[in-house]
């Protein structure tokens, strides 16, 4: 029997009629633990109790199914590539740690065969020690039969950084959570997200930047395109907690809406209990600029092709922020392959 749990809760909530306060998902009664090369169970799971964007009910579900955290050692200065090709109901909790002063580059590529019907949960937990940098890139491009929950939690120490780049294409329903605990002074969390949703695909996001320490900084930048009955909900929260004086948080979203059948919901919260902070949000939602399309068409590109180029540009806006050259090349190759398919 399937379990129904609540994820991606908006805190604080708003009007119920808008249907953005939370999302309910049905999960299989049992899931098996995924396998990741080089991963070893963590010695003390309580050391990896890090809050995530999807929330506590998902954590409870994983615990009830015996899915414990496993640690993947990422060698500093090298790109650690993890490929997840899902074939059945599977769940993983992957833990990464960057020691003081280290730079760690991780790339997670999520795929599944078009014929596979399954649910998958991938939870990623990151600890970034003082002065460290974690660059995490995720390419999320499963087949249409996969329903995916991709959930991330981070704990960022003094002067440490976590830079996340995510690309979402494919998959029927993708629920994405992210929560950064900016617990260190002068810490930084950045999210660059690109998505293309079409043919009834759904993307449900909840991204939270929790500013706990002085002068912590955060950025969320989302760009994407919607068409053919696609649905997207983006919840972005910048939470300035008392004591985070000098903190700075910014979130921006650009969404191209390509036809009248889509639903685009944007919920950018700024919560504040500290006086000396700067928080901002900007959103631009609508159809592609006609003058831009006209320019492209005047250069011999037909309208349909021009729209495809603009869709891709939404992804590339995020990809251009991948810090590691090898990871950048990996992702661009995937985008280029898809371009050739068109």
């Amino acid at each position: 029997m399937a379990d129904k749990i609540m994820i991606n809760s908006l805190v604080p909530p708003t009007w119920n009629r808008l249907k953005v306060n939370e999302t309910y998902v049905e999960l299989p009664a049992s899931v098996s633990s995924g396998k990741t090369d080089g991963a070893v169970p963590v010695a003390d799971a309580s050391e990896w109790k890090i809050e995530t964007g999807c929330g506590e009910e998902l954590a409870g579900y994983l615990e009830n199914n015996g899915i414990g955290p496993v640690k993947v050692t990422a060698d500093p200065g090298e790109l650690t590539v993890i490929k997840k090709d899902y074939t059945a109901d599977t769940a993983d909790v992957l833990c990464f740690e960057a020691g003081a002063g280290e730079t760690v580059n991780i790339l997670i590529d999520i795929t599944s065969d078009e014929k596979i019907k399954a649910s998958a949960i991938l939870k990623v937990l990151i600890k970034a020690a003082k002065d460290s940098v974690v660059n995490l890139t995720q390419v999320i491009r499963p087949g249409r039969g996969l329903e995916l929950i991709n959930d991330i939690g981070t704990d960022i120490s003094d002067k440490a950084q976590v830079n996340l780049v995510q690309i979402f294409t494919g998959g029927s329903i993708i629920n994405a959570g992210y929560r950064s605990g900016l617990s260190g002074e002068d810490s930084f969390a950045g999210c660059r997200i690109g998505f293309i949703r079409t043919d009834g695909e759904k993307l449900d996001m909840n991204y939270v930047m929790k500013h706990l320490a002085p002068r912590s900084k955060s950025e969320i930048n989302v760009s994407g395109a919607l068409s053919k009955s696609a649905v997207k909900i983006f919840r972005g929260t910048i939470d300035f907690v008392k004591g985070c004086a000098g903190a700075d948080g910014a979130e921006n979203e650009r969404v191209l809406i390509l036809d009248d059948t889509v639903i685009n919901k944007t919920v950018p919260l700024i919560l504040c209990t500290e006086e000396n902070v700067a928080g901002s949000h900007g959103a631009s939602i609508g159809k592609p600029a006609e003058d831009m399309l006209f320019y492209m068409m005047s250069r011999g590109i037909d309208r349909e092709k021009a729209l495809k180029i603009l869709e891709r540009a939404s992804l590339e806006a995020a990809v251009s922020h991948i810090a590691d050259p090898a990871a950048y090349e990996y992702v661009m190759n995937i985008i280029d392959e898809n371009r050739e398919d068109d």
Partner: peptide
């Protein structure tokens, strides 16, 4: 909250604290 269901819209939002 912004809930947009048409392609032909021009929606801008800014918030600051």
């Amino acid at each position: 909250v912004m809930d947009i269901r048409t392609d032909d819209a021009d929606i801008g939002h800014e918030a600051s604290i």
